[in-house]
Structures are given as C-alpha cells and as structure tokens.
Design a protein around this nucleic acid. Structure first.
Length: 277
DNA sequence: TCAGACCCTCACAG
DNA sequence: ACTGTGAGGGTCT
C-alpha cells in the first residue's frame, strides 16, 4: 500500500465526495474510503492537498481532477448574486471524473430517491454482485457483464424497486456492445446525450449527470427538483417559469462551465440555503 | 404538454 | 411502541 500527496489548493474533499455525484464514499476514522476502478482507496484532506492511500495512488489524480484550476472555472460563472452566494458558501467543491458504467448505473438507481437511499442501494448492489478486492473491506462496482447475467429478481433483492428492469436492460445493452460507452468520449455533447437517452431508464436528467460526472462534458446541466427549486427561487422569485423557459435560461446564462455552476447551485440549495418555500 | 404509475424506505406525525 | 402518511438528484406511457 503506497501513499502519495496530490498537491492541490481550493479543494473541499468532503463536500465533493458527499455532494451527490458519487455514492460510495464513507468517512472512516478520519479518512474517506472508497473504490476507484479496482482499487480500494483512502483519502485524507491535508494542508497541502489530498493524501492518497492506495496500491497505485497516482491513478486517483484523474478521478479527483486535482489538476483543474478551480479559480479559472469559477471566473467563468455569471456574476449575479445567487451564483456568487453559492460559490462563497461552497468554495472548494469540485466535479469528479468517474467511470462511465458505474456512474450510469448509479444514476439509473437514483430516480426519486434521496441521496442516502441511493447510497444504500448502490452499496447493496456492490456487496451482492461486485468482486472482492483482496485485503479490502469493499467490493468493486459490478460490471455491466456481471449484471447482465442476472435476473430482475436478483436486482430487486437490492431494494431498487421499479428501477431493476431499467438497470438490467441497460446492463445488457452495454454488455452486448450495442452501445459502446467509450465511444461517447469522441462525440459532441448533444450526440452523446442522444445516445444515452436511448437507454431504458435514462432521460434527460440522468443523461446529463453521466455526461457531466463521468465524461466531463462541461456544458451538461442536470435539472432535478433541487436545481429547479434553486433556479426558481433565486432567479425568478415572482414569476413561475415553465421548464422550457428554465432550460433556455440555463443555456444562455451560465456560460461554458454551466455544469460546474449547476453543482454549486445544487450543493448550495441542499446544504446551506434556507428552504422555506 | 400532462397526469399517473412505478418499488421501496425512512422520517415524522399522531 | 404502533400505524399512517408523504416524499424522495425521474422515466415511461
């Protein structure tokens, strides 16, 4: 087990790992435990960056996106009051770069679920069908091939309810190479989004989550109930804009890093903003 | 465009 | 302690 310091400033590790982009991180004895690919990883925020404890610590660099210049990203945000409040309240919040399959499967499981519940389901899926990692308390996230070979009943045993057939069908499509998740990297946002929404259980919102959290399409902007609430309350306190109107607003207002801005608004609403409606 | 259904769990009333 | 109720990072028909 090796240890390495990834030097980085302006990185709030706890906020990033608990902000609803990834669902497997747990704080144990002052360190964040999780799995990246096939490695069990422990992360610690220290003075000069993030301390990574893993067999191959440098592989966490890509996942954590420690090379991103956060100040430069935030400089592209609009200078309106709500956005600046979110930035101030959530300083150091980052976007991860996750494995596409794990991200896709996890967000199929996310629909109308609280984040705690998503974490529970994902955990059950990994404990039941993931592969053990020698010398580690956690399993890998099960591959599409592994899930494709299961039954709907097998999946329902993990308490995912009506999401089970969606996940199963999507796993089969991915395992059969009817959709190559790697090929999306070379596509434009709009094409990649179209490919993802072909999948059962994947609509605009979940597609945008995968585009943003796994592929790094910075212009993907997931609109869920929280962000919708944020946009309405913060930007249209009096009017009652349609969802169409909101989408238009998003596309023109938030700039090239709209996805990053979205994560700030989401986290801000969920953790800081007084939600008296 | 617009409900309603969809599984299940947990928080919170009473 | 018990039962009832509502809602939760949506999608499909």
């Amino acid at each position: 087990m090796a240890e390495k310091l990834l030097p980085v400033r302006n990185y709030d590790l706890a906020a990033t790992l608990t902000s609803g982009q990834a669902f497997r991180w747990r704080l144990v004895d002052g360190a964040w435990q999780g799995v990246i690919g096939r490695q069990f990883v422990r992360l610690k925020q220290v003075q000069d960056g993030i301390l990574v404890n893993a067999p191959l610590p440098s592989s966490a660099e890509e996942y954590l996106q420690t090379n991103v210049d956060l100040a430069a990203v935030i400089a592209t945000f609009p200078e309106d009051v709500p956005m600046q409040a979110a930035v101030k309240a959530c300083w150091g919040l980052r976007l991860l770069r996750q494995d596409p399959w794990e991200c896709l499967a996890s967000f199929i499981l996310s629909s109308t679920k609280q984040i705690v519940q998503i974490q529970q389901i994902v955990r059950a899926v990994c404990e039941c069908y993931g592969e053990t990692i020698p010398g580690s308390p956690m399993n890998t996230f099960p591959s599409a091939e592994k899930l494709a070979a299961l039954t709907e009943e097998n999946l329902r045993a993990c308490k995912m309810g009506f999401r089970a057939p969606y996940l199963l069908e999507t796993a089969r499509i991915v395992a059969n190479r009817k959709l190559d998740l790697e090929s999306l990297r070379r596509m434009k946002t709009i094409e990649a989004r179209a490919a993802l929404t072909e999948l059962p259980g994947v609509g605009e919102k979940i597609a945008n989550c995968v585009l943003l959290f796994a592929y790094g399409f910075q212009d993907a902007f997931p609109v869920d109930v929280w962000v919708q609430k944020a946009l309405k309350q913060l930007y249209f306190p009096k009017r009652k804009p349609s969802k169409e109107r909101l989408i238009k607003f998003i596309q023109t207002h938030f700039g090239p890093n709209a996805g990053y801005a979205q994560q700030y608004l989401f986290h801000y609403m969920r953790t800081r903003y007084d939600q008296a409606d």
